[in-house]
Design a binder for these strands. Structure first.
Length: 437
RNA sequence: GCGAAUGUGGUGAAGUGGUUAACAUUCCUGGCUGUGAACCAGGCACUCGUGGGUUCGAUUCCCAUCAUUCGCCCCA
């Protein structure tokens, strides 16, 4: 093989690409139903944009960004996430001047992080996400959560475990950080290298440490909830209450802090556990941000976002045999001899013009292999043309699912195809319905 | 960035320091068939991931590299 794909990248083709499209279209349809509009922002941005928003101390910025200088000596990065670019776009388009809040955006597209690939994790990966910006109302937090919950359910993730926490507002967090620093400074000499860095860069992230001996120390650390001010506490209570009213089961997890610095108040994650009990971890996550918009030059307003990785969703759905149906074509026209190929091509063209998806064989071979070709294309109907059919202006129309075959006059063909395809759709709907129950 | 395993045809997978790389399956071609079958005959690795080294000789040994998978870190 002359060239292989780069580490952490992959070609998405055929069935997998169909599945990606299906997943993305379900997510975007859902977002549209919730009143979100699509934002397509560039894949490259100034490096500074991500450093500013994700935080200098975040792992994403410190070791995972694809950054480079362009020919004009500008520092550019491939985006590691889409929130920053989306907010930037809102500001550039002066959407905040109209004050029709919240501004609701959704996006789908590639992101890049330089990290070690694993199952469902890539260096170039696609994310779907939403941002609801401009209003501080806790209802927006809940709306985004309900959207995420609903969308993931519709995709076939049934046993979702929804974890939520609050990081409090800037004031609460500042007090809490001070408390953490004074607590951990007593033990820091015995803690891991990363924690020694974190205590200065971002003490909150020590709570995320997985080193066993550190975990013991962390257990005794002050709790954020004891440092929340009245406002943050009430806000969080309102979020929880509204979630309950909308039948979202939650689990408050006070160790939940997110890797990006811009979050404040509500943060959340959707975890998935399969029917067989396998825990896939977080398949979607998000949170509220209060300073991000102002930080990027916009007004002092807050927002809330949610994102999930398409590759991860796909890999879990595939793992559980729960992929959306792949595309099929309506009609496959087959002939045994090249003599009839031109007639077949004429027929295929007219079927396509009538709006059917149709294909034909050009390389004539045995019936056995032609039916296999039709099957590989996931075809619903086959049309067989031979000498008798040409002479009598008819075709043999075969339902590849039931294996029933009819002789149909050319004049009646499209009606008959419509009729049979309708049966297919009824069947599909029924099937789909069963799956959802 | 750290640790471990793997890399032989479309797929699964044997194998050896020495002429034609076993087997299974898929696929393709030809024969016979107006219908996804059966049967017969034949074909499909001339870089055994890539590059280098050891050797008279390497797919088999050594090194590097690339890729995949798993764990850690982190995250979607």
């Amino acid at each position: 093989m002359e060239y292989s794909v780069l580490k952490g990248t992959h070609d998405v083709i055929k069935d997998e690409a169909d599945a990606y499209s299906a997943i993305e279209s379900l997510l975007t349809t859902c977002a549209t139903n919730y009143g979100f509009r699509e934002f397509r922002t560039p894949i490259i941005e100034k490096t500074e944009l991500f450093v500013r928003t994700s935080g200098e101390s975040s792992d994403i910025v410190r070791k995972e960004m694809y950054d480079f200088k362009d020919k004009g000596d500008r520092n550019i990065s491939l985006r590691p996430e889409v929130t920053a670019g989306t907010i930037r776009a809102m500001i550039n388009a002066k959407l905040f001047a109209i004050q029709d809040f919240p501004i609701k955006a959704y996006y789908v597209g590639p992101n890049f992080r330089y990290e070690r690939p694993q199952q469902g994790r890539f260096r170039q990966f696609n994310q779907f996400g939403v941002e609801s910006v401009g209003s501080d109302s806790y209802i927006n937090d809940v709306e985004v959560i309900v959207l995420g919950f609903t969308a993931l359910k519709m995709l076939g993730f049934k046993n979702l475990k929804f974890k939520i926490n609050t990081l409090g507002d800037l004031e609460s967090r500042k007090k809490y950080k001070e408390a953490l620093v004074s607590y951990f400074s007593k033990y820091i000499d015995n803690m891991c290298f990363d924690c020694k860095e974190r205590i200065n860069l971002n003490p909150l992230r020590i709570l995320d440490c997985k080193v066993e001996s550190d975990i013991e120390i962390i257990k005794g650390a002050p709790k954020l909830k004891d440092y929340l001010n009245q406002k943050s506490t009430e806000r969080f209570e309102n979020v929880l209450k509204l979630l309950k009213e909308n039948e979202i089961d939650y689990e408050v997890d006070d160790t939940l802090v997110r890797g990006l610095d811009y979050y404040s108040e509500t943060v959340f994650e959707f975890h998935y556990i399969s029917d067989l009990g396998k825990n896939y971890g977080a398949i979607g996550a998000g949170g509220h941000y209060s300073e991000l918009v102002e930080q990027l030059g916009g007004p002092k307003v807050s927002g809330v976002g949610f994102a999930c990785g398409i590759e991860r969703l796909y890999s879990i759905l595939a793992d559980n045999n729960n992929l959306p149906e792949i595309n099929s074509i309506d009609v496959y026209v087959m002939t045994m001899k090249p003599d009839f190929n031109e007639a077949a091509f004429g027929l295929v063209t007219s079927l396509r013009n009538c709006g059917f998806s149709a294909d034909m064989n050009v390389e004539n071979s045995s019936f056995s292999s032609m039916f296999k070709k039709a099957e590989r294309r996931n075809t619903k109907l086959a049309i067989i043309i031979g000498q008798n059919e040409i002479e009598n202006s008819v075709v043999q129309l075969k339902n590849l699912h039931t294996k029933e075959q009819f002789e149909v006059k050319l004049d009646d063909l499209t009606d008959k195809i419509d009729e049979i395809l309708e049966e297919f759709e009824d069947h599909d709907h029924h099937h789909h319905h069963e799956q959802q129950e």
